[in-house]
Design a protein around this nucleic acid. Structure first.
Lengths: 190, 190
DNA sequence: GTCTATAATAGGATAGAC
DNA sequence: GTCTATCCTATTATAGAC
C-alpha cells in the first residue's frame, strides 16, 4: 500500500526529503534530486508517495510532531512561569537549529501545501501555538510579562523563527544561549 | 537596450512582478503569469529582462531601496534613542505591511537569487542592517536597552519580519501599533 | 515595445518488468 | 520495493515580423 503508510522505509525517505527541502526549499527541489539523495530512481519514489506535495506534507507533519514532542518533554515538571518560558524557547530553538530540518520546513514551506494537506496540519500548528499561548499567559498573569498575549507570542515566535536565517552553528553561541538572550531582552530573568 | 535600464515602463513591470512574487512566491510565479498581469505576451517580457531571475533581482533591489529611503526619512531630525528606535521599527513595518510587496520579497526570496545578483544586493542589505545596528547601539549606550547589540538587532528584525506571516490588514491594529507594542515588549517606552 | 510561433528542456508522473 | 522506459505538460527562452 502506498497511501499515508508509516513504514520505516518511508520515514527514512521523509527524513532525507526534509534535509533537501531545508537546504534548497521545496520548489527548487526536484523529485529527481530527492530520488538521487535517497539512492533510488525517481519512478520508485511514487511507490511511497502519491505525488511530490505529499512528501512535503509528510515532512511538515514530522516537523510539527517533533516540535510538539520536544516541547512537551522540556515542559514536564517545570512549574515556574519564567522557567516554562525558557524551556519552551529552548525546545523551539533546539528543533529549529539542532535537528535543523523538518521543523524549519514546517515553518517556511507552509504556502506550498495543497488545500487538502493544510486541513490536517492546521490542527497541529494550532496545538503548538496554544502551548505558547498558555505559557505566555501564565507569565502575564504572574506579572513576569506585560502586554497583549497573542502579540507577545507572535513577536517571540517571530524572533525565534528568524534565527534560521542567520544562526551559525559553528559560532560560539548555542541555541540555549539564544533562548536566554531573548528571554532577557523581554525582561525575563531567573 | 535591455540590460538593467531604468525606463518608466520597466519600473511598472517590476512593481507588478513584486506583487505576484509577494502573493505566490518567486518559484511558483511563471513568466506567463507575470506577462498576463502586465498585459503583454510572455515573449515580450524578455525585451525588458534577460531572464526570470533578473526580474527577481530588480524587485529585491527596489525593495531594499524603498526600505532604506523610508527609514532615512523617518529618522531625519529624530535624536532621542528611544524615538529613533520607534521610528525605524515603524518605517520597517510600513514598507513590509503597507507597501507590502517589494520589501517582503527582498526578505523572503533571497535564496532564489543567482550568485551574480547577490553581490550587488548584499551591500544594500548590509547598509540597512547597519542603520539598525547604530540605532540599537545608541539605545544600549544610553541605557535604554541592555544586552548584545547584534543579537538585539536580529531578534528585533526577526519579530518584525515575521509579522508578514500573520498580520491582517483588515484587523484593528495598524503597523504603528505593532511597532509600539514591540518596543514596549523590550522595555522601550517614551 | 509587442506580437506570433516555436525551440529546448526540465519537471512531475505512469506502466509494466523484475 | 526498485528499475527502465517513457509520456505529457509546463516552463523558460529565442527569432524574426510588425
Amino acid at each position: 500500500m502506498t497511501l499515508t503508510n508509516n513504514s520505516k522505509r518511508r520515514k527514512e525517505l521523509v527524513s532525507i526529503a526534509a534535509r533537501l527541502f531545508f537546504e534548497q526549499g521545496y520548489e527548487r527541489t526536484t523529485v529527481r534530486m530527492l530520488a538521487d539523495a535517497m539512492g533510488i530512481k525517481s519512478g520508485s519514489l511514487f511507490h511511497h508517495f502519491n505525488d511530490k506535495q505529499e512528501i512535503l506534507c509528510a515532512v511538515i507533519q514530522d516537523g510539527m510532531e517533533s516540535a510538539l514532542e520536544i516541547a512537551g518533554e522540556k515542559l514536564t515538571g517545570v512549574t515556574d512561569p519564567k522557567e516554562r518560558f525558557l524551556a519552551l524557547a529552548r525546545a523551539h530553538l533546539s528543533t529549529l537549529l539542532t535537528d535543523r530540518n523538518a521543523h524549519v520546513v514546517a515553518l517556511y514551506e507552509w504556502r506550498s501545501l495543497s488545500e487538502g494537506s493544510l486541513e490536517v496540519l492546521i490542527g497541529m500548528r494550532d496545538e503548538y501555538e496554544q502551548l505558547w499561548q498558555q505559557v505566555i499567559d501564565d507569565c502575564v498573569t504572574s506579572g513576569v510579562l506585560k502586554g497583549d498575549v497573542p502579540l507577545i507570542r507572535r513577536f517571540t515566535l517571530g524572533a525565534l523563527n528568524w534565527t534560521v536565517q542567520w544562526y551559525d552553528a559553528s559560532g560560539e553561541k548555542t541555541p540555549d544561549d539564544l533562548a536566554n538572550a531573548l528571554a532577557e531582552l523581554i525582561g525575563i530573568q531567573l
